[in-house]
Design a protein around this nucleic acid. Structure first.
Length: 228
DNA sequence: AACAGGCGCAACCGCCTGCTG
DNA sequence: CCAGCAGGCGGTTGCGCCTGT
């Protein structure tokens, strides 16, 4: 399949957006919406490609974007969800109203990644010293559990992500807030464990189900607080 | 005061997926 | 069923700012 030519081949502008461009984009979207990103810059009189406009809008100009530092609660949620979902930033962002995938991705790479690495170093030395003594920190519980759960992920041919049905209410709520979020993540929200667990795996399945249910409920509570 | 290196973040790039004709 | 298009996603880059020397 041949890829459609992008900005650079069309003589369109690249790089940082000016205030004027922002203003044009905002007022155009407020008036006409953004049904067709590719046609939008032409209609709005912007020398940008549609992709660039979409990015600028979703990551920066959208009115419902929450700017500023991440709260501790948000950090916790990101860490938890990253353990669960991996680098699927849009899926993580869909649970943090007002935060964009780009923002979360940046925050992860600049703050949390390092912090967790340090934390892991500490944890490993602690474990060496104290054997299996573990704190009751939720993150550490996830750490342990991830070993099992990541196997489910890796075996994606048969096993898909598990989300408790109780999360669907939250998803429904968030659909209004983040309409731009992908069909992929929505799809995943609706996924259930497949029935590929063998009979002997059902205990593990139930334990995992219970564990992740708790994780989601605890993070979900925080998220719904944000919404309400 | 000047410089170098690191950091943070906005923006870009290329691939993937879903939709449509 | 297939090709093309548009939107979305995650990885990466580039640049301005900050901090340490």
């Amino acid at each position: 399949m041949v890829r459609a030519p992008c900005c650079e081949k069309m003589g369109l502008k690249k790089g940082p957006w000016t205030q004027e461009e922002d203003q044009i984009l905002i007022s155009f979207i407020q008036k006409y919406g953004h049904e067709n990103w590719r046609a939008l810059p032409k209609q709005a009189g912007l020398l940008r490609c549609g992709k660039s406009c979409r990015l600028r809008w979703t990551n920066y100009l959208r009115p419902d974007i929450k700017r500023g530092n991440f709260s501790e609660e948000e950090e916790e949620i990101i860490i938890k969800l990253h353990k669960l979902l991996g680098n699927r930033w849009s899926a993580i962002a869909s649970r943090l109203p007002g935060r964009t995938d780009n923002e979360i991705k940046n925050f992860w790479h600049t703050h949390l990644k390092k912090r967790l690495e340090q934390h892991n170093d500490l944890a490993s030395t602690t474990t060496t010293k104290k054997g299996h003594e573990m704190t009751t920190n939720v993150t550490q519980n996830i750490e342990e559990h991830h070993i099992i759960s990541s196997n489910y992920y890796q075996d994606s041919q048969n096993i898909v992500a598990y989300h408790p049905t109780s999360c669907h209410d939250q998803e429904d709520l968030q659909e209004n807030n983040s309409s731009s979020h992908d069909t992929q993540s929505n799809k995943e929200e609706n996924m259930q464990y497949s029935t590929n667990y063998g009979h002997g795996d059902m205990t593990r399945f139930n334990n995992d189900m219970f564990f992740w249910y708790n994780v989601f409920m605890s993070s979900g509570n925080n998220a719904s607080d944000e919404i309400n």
